[in-house]
Computed example of a mutant assay.
Amino acid sequence: MKIKQIEVFSVHLPLIKPFIISYANYPHISSIIVKLTTECGLVGWGESVPDEHITGETPESTYAMIKNTFAPVMIGQNPMEFEKIHDLLDKVVKRAPAAKAAIDIACFDVTGKKLGVPVYRLLGGRYHEKFPVTHVLSIGKPEDMADEAEEKLKEGYTSFKMKVGVNVMDDVKRIKAVRARVGEEIAIRVDVNQGWENSANTLKALRQLEDLGLDWLEQPVDQNDIDGMVEIKSKTSIPQMIDEGLKDMNDMREIIAKRAADKVNIKLMKCGGIYPAMKLANMAEMAGIECQVGSMVESSIGSAAGFHVAFSKKIIKSVELTGPVKFSKDIGDLKQDYIIPFIQLNERPGLGVSIDESILAELTQKSDVIE
């Protein structure tokens, strides 16, 4: 099986409401979609949602990278040879993980379709039967975040991820307000997205949060401050998760050596796709560090890819892949697999996602074909 053609689409995915985190406010999500077609007529879909604050890639640079650099070298390659494909891409460009993820995901999708199996079968088979769906609360006023959490409780959600990271003491008020509203039994995870900057600010907050029963605190300090994470972890009982600070195997090696985190958040856009994500999960498993699969708020394509990784690995204990339920319009149909409060994957080959190309055309800003 050889790759005959690659189409690249720049799309704007419309959000139901703006997505607000410590360093950005997103009115929509800019995504790069890849459609890979083989000589035998099979189609694989991939996606890239870059983040210039984390991977150093923008939507514009990612589109150009795939169109001008990655797609031309992929023509004629066998999409089933994952190791060889990543080696080829790495030799062409040293990093660009989000751009590589789009190619990687499309290759896994088309390979699963060729073999007639879901992607998770290519990764070792299904381990988990279902995962709880976590609702993500964007940064807002304490009472507004508490109101939204209460509303989502009524819809069946049993866990929340709070976005904070604007001001330490204001963030403490936000967290306390949500905990008071939802009660002690509901899971709350707090994601600072580097917003507390350093260990001193973080420890100031944690002194007021110790008794709130938080599941974990995620990336409170700058992504490069691994030593800061070590200090925080040594001085609190609240489990610490690294997200932005984990992009590749070198980062994971340092995290393991320094015991810098209780948990790590693996994202396909940070590491280069499904194949590198599995390598990170294996490294974490050897070190006894629990994993989560998160996202950059991708469409059904990128979200499904993350789910296939998560469902195949015992060491992956949670998922935060909420894109399909945050969009007012999506190019795929994964949303139907969100049966709140759980997500359950279907048994269709490849990613198991059907693409509505009329919606894709409607949301596309520009496109190109490489043969």
Rank of each mutant, 00 (worst) to 15 (best):
A304K: 09
K100L: 02
V264G: 11
D262R: 08
V49Y: 02
V192N: 02
V293P: 06
N224A: 07
K91A: 10
I301R: 06
K176Q: 15
N25Q: 14
S300Y: 03
I188S: 06
P341K: 01
D330A: 14
P79A: 08
D144G: 03
M65E: 11
K258F: 09
I186E: 00
R207S: 15
I32F: 04
V168S: 05
L334W: 04
S138C: 05
E285Y: 04
E83P: 00
L13A: 10
T236V: 05
L89Q: 08
I266T: 12
S354H: 08
L42D: 00
K17G: 01
V182T: 06
A149F: 01
Q292T: 12
G183Y: 08
A98G: 07
E151C: 03
R95G: 05
L88A: 05
G228V: 06
M229F: 11
A180H: 03
K335Q: 11
K113C: 04
S354A: 05
S30P: 07
G352R: 08
Q5K: 14
L15D: 04
M252W: 04
A24T: 12
V73W: 01
L246Q: 01
A260H: 14
T37H: 00
S237E: 08
V182H: 07
K204R: 15
M162L: 15
R189D: 01
P276W: 08
L15N: 03
D368L: 03
Y26G: 00
E47D: 01
M169E: 14
M65V: 14
A71I: 04
I343N: 01
V353I: 13
R348T: 03
N68V: 00
C107G: 09
R174F: 00
R259T: 04
R207E: 15
M286Y: 07
L89P: 09
W45P: 02
I139M: 03
L153A: 09
I339N: 12
N193Y: 00
S237W: 01
S354W: 01
M169H: 13
L217M: 12
I339Y: 00
M74Y: 06
Y338R: 09
E39A: 08
Y63I: 09
M283G: 09
F307Y: 15
E143S: 15
G44D: 08
I255C: 05
V221C: 14
K326L: 15
L214W: 02
M249N: 11
V293K: 04
E320C: 12
K154Q: 12
I105E: 07
I226N: 02
V190E: 03
A106F: 10
S295T: 15
V166K: 12
A261V: 03
S234M: 08
V190N: 10
S199E: 14
N282E: 12
A187G: 02
L351H: 08
I301S: 03
G124N: 09
D262S: 11
H53N: 13
R174N: 13
N346I: 05
G112T: 03
I6D: 02
